[in-house]
Amino acid sequence: MDLGRAPAGGRDGERTEGTSEGTAGTEFRLLGPVEIRDGLTGRDIVPPGSKQRALLSAFVIHAGQLLSVDRLTEELWGDRPPSNAANALQAHVARLRRLLPAPGGGHEWISTLPAGYLLTLGPATTDVQRFHRLSAKGRAALASDPGYAAELLRRALSLWRGPALQDSGKGPICTTEADRLEENRLTTLETLYEASLRCAQHGEITGELEKLTADHPLRERFYDLLMLALYRGGRQAEALGVYERARRRLMDALGIEPGPALRGRMEAILNHAPHLSAPAPHSHAPARAVALTEALALGGEIARLRRRIDELGLEQEALVRRFDAMIARLPGGT
Rank of each mutant, 00 (worst) to 15 (best):
T112A: 14
S83N: 07
G264M: 03
A140Q: 08
L55V: 02
P258W: 15
A149R: 04
P103S: 12
E27I: 15
H132W: 11
R322E: 13
R133Q: 12
S196F: 00
V46C: 05
P258G: 12
R307C: 08
E17A: 06
G171T: 08
W160K: 14
A58Y: 06
A195P: 09
M227H: 03
H272N: 04
R265I: 02
D79W: 12
M1I: 02
A303T: 01
E75N: 13
R235F: 01
H282G: 09
E204D: 03
A58H: 09
E27P: 10
P258N: 12
A86W: 01
E315V: 14
R37G: 07
T41L: 04
T191P: 00
E301A: 13
R71M: 04
L189C: 12
T188R: 10
I45T: 02
V290M: 13
A237T: 13
E190I: 01
A156G: 15
P101A: 10
L330V: 06
K51Y: 06
R133N: 10
E317R: 15
R37Q: 11
G147C: 02
A88W: 09
Y117C: 00
G234T: 13
R245D: 07
L40D: 06
G259R: 06
F323R: 08
R248E: 07
A140K: 10
R80H: 12
W77Q: 11
A8D: 05
R306G: 08
F323G: 01
T26H: 11
E257C: 01
L240M: 08
E311I: 15
L119E: 04
H284Q: 13
G105K: 06
S277T: 04
R180F: 12
L3E: 09
P114K: 02
G332K: 09
R198V: 04
D79M: 14
L314E: 14
G264R: 05
A328C: 05
I327E: 14
T23D: 02
R53F: 05
S57M: 03
L89I: 02
E35R: 15
R11H: 08
G105F: 05
L230A: 03
R198L: 15
A268W: 00
A246R: 01
P48G: 06
V320P: 00
L3N: 11
R249V: 03
V242S: 12
L55D: 01
A239S: 14
E21D: 04
S57D: 03
M251S: 14
L254I: 02
V242N: 06
H275K: 07
L240H: 06
G10P: 06
P33Q: 07
T19G: 15
E108S: 15
D12S: 13
E301L: 14
K170H: 07
S68M: 09
G147V: 09
S57L: 08
D310V: 03
G207F: 01
V290S: 14
A280F: 02
G106F: 08
D252I: 00
G22C: 10
L305C: 04
T26S: 07
L250T: 13
F28Y: 07
S283H: 14
L254V: 04
Y223C: 11
P101H: 05
G138W: 11
V60I: 15
R221H: 05
